[in-house]
Amino acid sequence: MDPLFWLLEPLRHDFMVRALLVSALVAGVCGMLSCFMTLKGWALMGDAVSHAVMPGVVIAYALNLPFALGAFIFGVGSVAVIGYIKQMTRIKEDTVIGLVFTGFFALGLTLISKVRSTIDLTHILFGNVLGISGEDIRQTVLISVLVLVLLLLFRRDLILFCFDPTHARSIGVNTGFLHYLLLSVLSLAAVAGLQTVGIILVVAMLVTPGATAYLLTDRFDRMTWIAIGSAVLSSVLGIYWSYWMDASTAGCIVLVQTGLFVLSFLFAPRHGLLAQQRR
């Protein structure tokens, strides 16, 4: 097939242009956040939050509120519940995370089957970026921009918080605030991401680009750019791929991301498998 045709033909459809733009924005923002998630070791927390937002989304749709609001409340709420149970009992954190997010997810699943609404379960679970509505686009763009601004404003504090929270606290940085800021941003990004790839795969957007970039560089600023670049590239390539193969969009996007990670894992100049074996 003519590559130019491959590239341009899908752009004749408005839904494709919309999907490409929205998912590139979301992927870029999630990619930026994924650097912090990778370095802080919060992948499991990202998984938990992204699943726990589901009842919030369902309730918000049922009450005709912005879905982001419901998702945000349940995302942050789930983290508060996790922290509370961990503090009050002797159960280990990963167990608490596992039981809380599945509980919230089950609640969402039950609600969606009982509440009369127009939302489609598969759209929430696996994303629906090709059929995204105007209102959803508006909210997604708003959330993405908000996340972007917060990450840029508090970038240096967040790096310090990930690297050395004790020092941060000792020089008077409010680490409690940064902790909840990062969690809030995570909840917001999860909501934005679930528009593109759905609840099940959103954690890939929040982890994979950061991990890919982490193997390629030893500098945080470069890591951020690589993560953003690989995330945006993955979403664009993934959408094209899904268009021409008529395959699941979410699946394709995440597969490309995973593929880029595998390349980085094998061929990264210093931290890759081959480089390490050569040493």
Binding site: I159, Y214, R219, F220, R222, M223
Partner: peptide
């Protein structure tokens, strides 16, 4: 207690 792999110089 320091993460020596952290991408920072």
């Amino acid at each position: 207690s320091v993460d020596w792999n952290f991408p920072i110089h």
